[in-house]
Design a binder for these strands. Sequence first.
DNA 1: CGCATCCTTGAGGGCCATCAAAATGCGTGG
DNA 2: CCACGCATTTTGATGGCCCTCAAGGATGCG
Lengths: 271, 271
Amino acid sequence: MRPLGQFAANVYAAKRMTDPNAEAVRYPFTGRFLLGRLRELMSDEEKALLEGIIERTEWIDKPSRLIARGEKTDHSTMLIDGFMLRTLDDTGRRHAVSFHVPGDFVDLHAFALKRLDHNIDTVGRVKVGYVSHAALDEVMREHRHLARLFWFSTLLDAALHREWITSLEHLTAPRRLAHIFAETWRRLEMVGLGDREGFDTPLTQIDLADMCGTTPIHANRAVRDLRERGIATFERGRVTIADRPALEAYADFDPTYLYGSASLDLRDFST
Amino acid sequence: MRPLGQFAANVYAAKRMTDPNAEAVRYPFTGRFLLGRLRELMSDEEKALLEGIIERTEWIDKPSRLIARGEKTDHSTMLIDGFMLRTLDDTGRRHAVSFHVPGDFVDLHAFALKRLDHNIDTVGRVKVGYVSHAALDEVMREHRHLARLFWFSTLLDAALHREWITSLEHLTAPRRLAHIFAETWRRLEMVGLGDREGFDTPLTQIDLADMCGTTPIHANRAVRDLRERGIATFERGRVTIADRPALEAYADFDPTYLYGSASLDLRDFST
DNA sequence: CGCATCCTTGAGGGCCATCAAAATGCGTGG
DNA sequence: CCACGCATTTTGATGGCCCTCAAGGATGCG
């Protein structure tokens, strides 16, 4: 994988970055949206507008299917706290096509598509915020730059999909798992979550299997492989990374596809 | 895979559809853009605008890398004739993450991302049209509805990615190949290409391998599998589908993710 | 007619699915 | 505090899919 550029070891060291925690406090519902990516290009007015169109928030305690494939929706969902999976079912089996962390506008694309071609499933306990499509439409009509940022955020999803495809095409199951851990950790860092040793997550090994495209049994062997290599450990509720360079090397991980602020030369979105 | 709804056997039979060939004649560069999807919602003014911002067209005779990963671009590319692959390289091997047919605005997302995280490779002989980002920006500033359609078209790419992921996660190589044939045929039909028996394509078995995430050797065995089952044959330059229902059943193919006009209830994009 | 590219086939081995079963951890209720 | 049920995690054995290495055949182009 040819690297596109250097990525600072500590993504928060980059210039023009926004302090993650301050944002999350000031904008409790939407403070992590595009954090670590292009949030530094959002004006205070835009941030306030976005925060203001969250009409309702909700805690969902148990893993559940928030939106089923084919359902017609008139609102979109901001993931405020916790994790979600985007999934597709085939006979008796669930397949994950992407994973979401706080700050992700998980079904913004439903605004344009109206019906999703996939499910949105919660993982563990989550807090979500709802925005009506009518409100989105109104805000976007008046605020072209914000509309452009919304577009950008859906393009990020597509970039994640592409990386997931490549990962499925050329990595073994343990390496794919390593890739998932590496990506998740980076994305959590971007939005001010995770810590020095790893991150907390309510994912089960069954979820990991859905994400790796393997069986739970083999996912377990992949977990064991990472443990025996001294790369990472997985316990219920917690992923601990013992050796980050080894993890990222094993996964053939190059974070440029995340379009993080630390690789600012990657895009030019100031208009 | 749970079907979302019925898809007419002949996608052109649906109401409110635009005649594919007439469009391609009237708008020689962009007449297939969103054809079979939401083109019927484009006004004549919008169609003319889009056609007008194509600044230059070019025939490219040999398979080549049109845009390399990481390259900075100030224009986007409309695929007018022929086929393209979106690829990522890893050590010595190319992996395809999506496939493009005429009418696809292949790197519209480069407008927002500026640098792509993947390559754009041509397959066989292609004709492309170029649009500067400045022109795109100007058109989108004045024409909100057209801007929305551009957004929609990039969301289609993401939907294709998701289907590709699912296909990789749960289908064997011969079935993935069948899925690629089924999808390609449908998409060509949408834009007025392909025919009753199949479609012409300059894809090699090496390309098929890159698309399936297998080796060329195994791709060849997948081709043989489809031939021996009486489902489809692949010769240089031509895919012939012997048994469409068998093909689509074998591939577990449900075309709703293509968001075609024939499944109009899938989205509501009239604003 | 030589060369390059693509297609085809065979043999051996590794990754991962499936079937089967047991151990661990957690929440609930007694 | 313990008993119990349930979901999750772990391990073993067998077999199929697909990779790798190797080699030969077809096709098209200069």
